[in-house]
Amino acid sequence: MKIAFYGSSLLSSYWNGAATYYRGILKALAGHGYDITFYEPDAFDRQQHRDIEPPEWARSVVYPATEEGLRSVLAEAGGADIVVKANGVGVFDRELLEGIVAQSRPEALRIFWDVDAAATLDEMRSDPSHPVLKALPSLDMVLTYGGGPPVVDAYTAFGAQRCEPVYNALDPDTHHPAPRDPRFEADLGLLANRLPDRESRIEEFFLRPAAALPDRQFLLGGNGWHDKGVTPNVRAIGHVGTGDHNAFNCTPRAVLNVARDSMANVGFSPATRVFEAAGAAACLITDAWEGIEMFLRPNEEILVARDGKDVAEILAALSPERAKAIGEAALDRVLAEHTYALRAEQVHGIFQQHQRTPEAA
């Protein structure tokens, strides 16, 4: 079966936190025999910051971020059995969603794949003309990369025929334990782009502990932090490509996960960074959100902080031996229960189930 997938970028993680999610899910789906084409716009300098070359398991189409480029890729939707529009492409999002509905075949499976469901739902609540809200009657299902029951209930209430969370996970071929790298030496590392709906939480969970522990070293990776005021013990190093993620996660004593506002409020939304860090056997500290125990056991496989004071206390008491034990336990858990191979089995089952239903026929 042919899948046409319209997303932000498969080839670049630059200002594109969903890259490893797309890669993990689609690579594993290709293993089930799907013929996948990923369409991404040439926008936001992503093509100048590629992390990977076009993979063998998907056809990659990079199109100009113009109306002509948009028309050229939407014209291919009619040749696919499954047509997917992901949120957050960044250019022509409304037109892409309307286009896949209009240009796909009547018998094709039409999917909106939401990698920021809590934020999308907030927008829909405040905007009756939101393109997703208008498209729901024409879509067969919504898939999300998190959100649990609150997101499923909200999408169903808005009229989605079906909503299924397909959580982030680990591709052990890509993220795994690696040698330490002197470039990333620190007591606590954080990898996160600077975004308006996460900055205040990073100030609380990362910069406040740094100020409280002046004798400890803090490492901040990600785009946008070059002009942020920080204490002398914080080193901002800019964008970190996916090829360096394993070393980044393996070198500091611990690494930190900080959820975006909407995901923290809804819960059940582990970021890709959670599984990347666990896959590298890193000791992970996370801000508190509902549903953590579904993925990793607090105090055994992950450490949970309610605020910056908790982060500082955890870090001050964290021995190398305990950090190592937590990281190894996390790795064992994600390899057993949270790989993209398992997520792809879930998605493959959803696709097959849809084909068998009388409504789909």
Rank of each mutant, 00 (worst) to 15 (best):
R260A: 10
A4S: 15
I326A: 08
A264E: 15
D81G: 14
P298T: 08
G78T: 09
L70T: 02
A325R: 14
F218W: 04
V166W: 02
A271M: 13
D45S: 14
A186S: 05
L10E: 00
H49G: 03
R208H: 12
L133T: 07
R183S: 11
Y34P: 03
Y155M: 02
E328S: 14
V304I: 14
R235F: 05
L335I: 06
E185G: 07
P358R: 05
I36D: 03
T242N: 13
R198C: 08
Q103R: 15
R253Q: 10
G229F: 06
A160Y: 02
R180A: 15
A341Y: 07
D181I: 05
Y155K: 01
T120E: 07
E204Q: 14
S13D: 06
D332A: 14
R71K: 14
H354W: 15
L284A: 05
G99P: 06
H338I: 03
E345G: 15
N193E: 08
I100H: 07
D122M: 08
A329E: 13
A28D: 06
L303E: 05
A43E: 12
L70W: 01
L133V: 07
A316V: 08
A211S: 14
I350F: 10
K27P: 00
W289F: 15
G7Q: 07
A236Y: 03
A316R: 14
V266L: 06
K2E: 12
E313I: 07
F275L: 05
A341C: 05
S60G: 13
H348M: 06
R260G: 02
T251Y: 09
I100N: 04
V234I: 12
R110T: 05
N193P: 03
H176G: 05
M1W: 06
E203S: 13
V91S: 11
G221E: 02
N249A: 15
S262Q: 11
A18F: 09
L284Q: 10
K228L: 13
N265P: 03
V132K: 00
R273V: 11
N299C: 10
R198V: 12
E321Y: 10
F205N: 00
A247C: 08
E321P: 07
R297Y: 04
I202D: 00
L296C: 04
Y39L: 14
V115Q: 13
